[in-house]
Simulated assay, not measured.
Amino acid sequence: MSYETVIQTAQNDTSLTLNHTCVRVKDPKVSVEFYTEKLGMKLLKRKDFPEMKFSLYFLAYPRDDLPIDPNGEVMPFGVPGILELTHNWGTENDSNFKVSNGNEEPHRGFGHICITTKDINAMCEKLESKNVNFKKRLVDGRQKDIAFILDPDNYWIELCAYNPSESGKNVNDYRLNHTMIRIKDPAKTLPFYENVLGMKVIEKSVHENGKFTLYFLGYGLQEGESKRSTQGMLEITHNWGTETDSEFQYHNGNEKPQGYGHICIASDDPEKMCKEIEEKYGDKITWSPKYNHGKMKNLAFIKDPDNYSIEIIPRGIVL
């Protein structure tokens, strides 16, 4: 499958933003408390869907550019760096229920979200004092500049530092920097994200000792920001050799056991964007559903070559 020539809508649409990352959680009370009390995020909005028996919780680090609707409510779809927690009602009362964190065989796929800070040592000390569970401390392993913690559902969260001089527009010390997923074949996946969705490779990192390559993609860096200080990037990890194994596939998080849900792209004109993708690529693209065709209107879901879901929504949508 090839994805030639950049879609003009995506290429020319400066409003495109990697807005949020969605993960499913067992108990929202526990998870929201973790992300707000332990990691310093703010709950921007909660939206309940009684007819479908699920709730959404939108969190982000405090910032000075969150858009507000006419009623004074925060609109979480206008900026990058948003975390969406999805709770399917009843899971909190099921002692046998647990999500798939994407890092355990045979259901590897989603890797982690990453939070960056000016002072990684101070951050880790603060989290240690709050009894946060560490998967990897700074002193562990070969990489002494990154740590990993676990949230209440055992999702991995990477922690690393950015240069304090790189402030960008966000006034908060912490940034929801990127989301990592593993992919089978970069020769298929990179053209999809670049040509269909209009992203750019910000950095490529080859690790010969570990036999893997990392690609950081996004919609550009604001003045004064770096790869580590920005918000709203996608990291794709390619473990060498998977592309030649015809039977190999990663778990996309939406097939059982569920866990990771999707990343979300926000646009000023998503309907036009989706229409041009359809016209350009036809049946090369898998939709689930097409724009405005599902129970929830004003959105679409598109599948990448590894069957991960990407939501496409209007930037100004009001929940």
Rank of each mutant, 00 (worst) to 15 (best):
I183D: 09
P191I: 09
L190V: 07
D173W: 03
P164Y: 01
N170P: 06
D153C: 10
R182G: 02
N154S: 14
N163E: 07
Y162R: 09
D153M: 05
W156N: 11
V171R: 10
E158S: 08
S167N: 10
M180R: 07
E194W: 10
P164T: 00
H178L: 01
E166V: 07
N154E: 15
L159H: 08
P152D: 13
D153T: 01
F192L: 07
P186I: 05
D185R: 06
A161N: 05
P186M: 01
I157P: 05
Y162C: 08
Y174T: 13
H178N: 00
D151M: 11
N195H: 08
A187G: 10
L176W: 11
T179R: 06
E194H: 14
H178S: 00
I183L: 02
H178Q: 03
K169D: 04
L159K: 02
Y155I: 00
C160A: 15
N177D: 05
S165T: 14
T189V: 10
P152N: 13
D185P: 09
P152T: 11
D151L: 04
L159D: 09
S167K: 11
L150E: 01
Y193G: 09
T189Y: 02
R182S: 05
G168P: 04
P191E: 08
N154F: 05
N154P: 10
T179K: 06
I181R: 07
R182I: 03
L176Y: 08
F192P: 09
L159R: 04
N172F: 12
A161G: 01
S165C: 04
N163R: 08
N195E: 12
P191T: 01
I157L: 13
F192N: 05
N195V: 02
K169W: 07
N177W: 04
K169L: 01
L159P: 01
N163C: 02
P164L: 01
S165E: 15
V171H: 14
N163L: 05
K188S: 09
Y174Q: 14
K169P: 04
Y155R: 00
G168H: 02
P152W: 14
N163S: 10
K188F: 00
L190K: 05
P191G: 06
N172S: 15
G168T: 00
L176G: 10
D153K: 02
K184W: 12
R182H: 05
L190S: 09
K188R: 12
Y155Q: 00
N177V: 03
G168N: 02
P152Q: 13
D151Y: 11
D153E: 07
N170T: 15
V171M: 08
T179V: 12
Y174I: 15
Y162D: 04
T189M: 03
E166R: 11
P191K: 11
A161S: 14
L190H: 00
Y193K: 09
E158K: 02
K184I: 12
K184T: 15
Y193N: 11
L176Q: 14
L150V: 10
R182Y: 04
R182L: 04
